[in-house]
């Protein structure tokens, strides 16, 4: 269990949040032209990184806004929090 610093509400208990999985998976621009392999890649295949990964979170029991997080999945340490549409931190 950890504390999450919501970019809109400040630091809150993790219980208020819902994890939304891997971030920056781009929705296909031309869905009708996608092959089965490309659909599988988009829908199902995940990096599932052990280490720092970028992921989406939702402040479900709070402001209900979505945002991004860089978190080390090996020890649950939060490295950075940034808003939707922003580029992931390089460090």
């Amino acid at each position: 269990m950890f504390l999450i610093n919501c970019p809109y509400c400040g630091e809150r208990d993790q219980q208020e949040f819902k994890a939304g999985g891997e971030a920056h998976i781009e929705r296909p621009k031309q869905p009708t032209e996608l092959s089965d392999d490309e659909w599988a890649e988009y829908l199902f295949m995940r990096k599932n990184i052990k280490g720092v990964q970028f992921e989406r979170w939702n402040h479900a029991h709070g402001c209900r806004k979505w945002f991004n997080m860089a978190r080390d999945t090996s020890n649950d340490e939060i490295k950075a929090i940034y808003k939707m549409g922003e580029k992931p931190p390089t460090q």
């Binding site: 269990m1 219980q15 819902k18 994890a19 599932n48 999945t73 090996s74 649950d76």
Partner: peptide, 14 residues
Amino acid sequence: TDDYISYSQKGSHQ
């Protein structure tokens, strides 16, 4: 299960 990805072998108290 918790809803977030983790390799920490620790889960949430709730």
